[in-house]
Design a protein around this nucleic acid. Sequence first.
DNA 1: GTTAGGG
DNA 2: CCCTAAC
Length: 611
Amino acid sequence: MEKVVEVEGSDEGKFEETGLETSNFVLSSPKNVTDPVVYKLVRVDGNGRLVPATDDELMEVEGLLENEKRETHIVADTGQALGCISNEVSPSGMPQLESSEDSHCSEQHNKLPSIDEKLHSQIPLQETVPSGAKSSSDDHVTQSGRVGECLKPLDGPLEGGSSTPTGCISSKPDFSKLKGEICLDNLSIKELHEVFKATFGRDTTVKDKLWLKRRIAMGLTNSCDVSATTFVIKDNKLVKKDNEDGFNNVNLGAGKEQLSVAVEYNEDLLNNLSSQSDEHQTTSEVRLGNNVVENNFASEDLAADQRAAKRVRKPTKRYIEELSEAESKEYSGRSIASTKSIGFRPLPSKAHARPARNVSLEGRTVITRLDSLGGFGIQVPCVYRIRRSRPRKNVTALLKFHPSGMGMTATFIKKGFDVHGSQMDNGSMNKVLEAKSTPEQAPEQFVAESKKETTPNDMGQNMGLKYVDPSGDTSDDNVVTVPTAKGGIRRKHHRAWTLSEVMKLVEGVSKYGAGRWSEIKRLAFASYSYRTSVDLKDKWRNLLKASFAQTPTDKGANSRKHPSMPIPASILLRVRELAEMQAQASLPNLSTGKLSACGGRSVNETRPGYL
DNA sequence: GTTAGGG
DNA sequence: CCCTAAC
């Protein structure tokens, strides 16, 4: 609602300003344009009541319709829009006639706004008005300035210029002044004004000869036929005299084609006044352009026509674009429609939040790829790296018993989504994640190692996390993000292998043979969904390496190496045996037989471990 | 999709 | 663990 028209009437001023009540003129079906004089004009004021249109309003609308019919129009809103369009928008680059400008200007500000003006009052000028000009105050300023200029020189001689609507309607037609033959074409503006007054019984401030002539012609003939500009008045009765003004006819014809378009816009406006302001605004703009064109149409009739046609079409395109654009962008609430459209627009953040959730095997809802929150990979959640059916740990589930931790999770999750791609404090994020991962791992080790001899970590107990059988714990996942050189964050899924896992692996290898990782995973590691066949393979590789490397010293490595995950010598031994077995199996009788023959261990011992 | 191997 | 080539 940036266009606020300066209006005389106090009531109009009210609702024009509010912008909430759509004040607009309701005219009878545009299809009945056959006789504009019959037009009924009603104004809907802010309260919704219908206010009978004043004579001036009627006149204006008539003029508008007529002009629309001719695909050009002289509307009172030119003045206010001129400030915006005179330079940039003047479509043809044609200079705008000062006289016409002034006439519109003066008329506009001394009469009630026409439909177009109303349109402008509710429709933002998108292309023509720079963003700054959207405030109503600006418009007022511009407008007032222009009014002053306009009125002074041109309206001086005519009292009607400043007359109020009520003042106008008081006069009566005075055909007595119209005697004999009148050739409108030969009359000056002043004379036309007199004729106008004689015809309509009131003054007009319109300085546009063409408009006056048509108005008068229409008034005299009581029809749309403005082909005649010469009339003979006899005894206060009009005798029309045909006139072969070619270009007028042409224009009329051309205008009729355009009328349908204009009418469409009007209907559209009336139906969707509030919701599709952009289009209407554009429409107004088009009209403005037409208006400008009309001033020169005598000489550039055809060109104006084409331009008008183009311009008529353009809004549609723009409308489509803008509409779709408007749907995705938030309105500033300037119009009623805007609020409506935002209403059901889901917040973008939601869209991001959803995919970040996943359902674990247990059916729990888990937040996946929390790691991505730590950096710019936030939006990656479920797309980036769907690691071979490796389920993600449910951090929230972990924190279920840890209120403080829960809060943290919620916080950074939300934060992460909000930030969405922007840099976050990776370190702190990782810390959070690490903090969670550590206790989470502990219980697992506890059980696994309890079988052995490692000291259990009581963190898990503190958390209240009940440690189920390792085989059942497959859903939780701790996440650590590792920034990559490529700028992406690689998620390091470091989950230490527990002894139980290792044992299962060894068992699986012994059962199914090394190399059949997928099978081992499927059968022996069914419950360890986070271990992939690749993981098994890698682990086995490591085990082999370790077993053969450590064999010489045996358990010495046990204590000194990674305290977190000491591999019992028994297991290593078993690995070694299996490796040899596999080697034997894979190398039944070869030249390498010597290797296997001599003590079971050879230089290339690691090799036989693989299938 | 799996496996092997390098990083 | 990740990545990827080779099956």
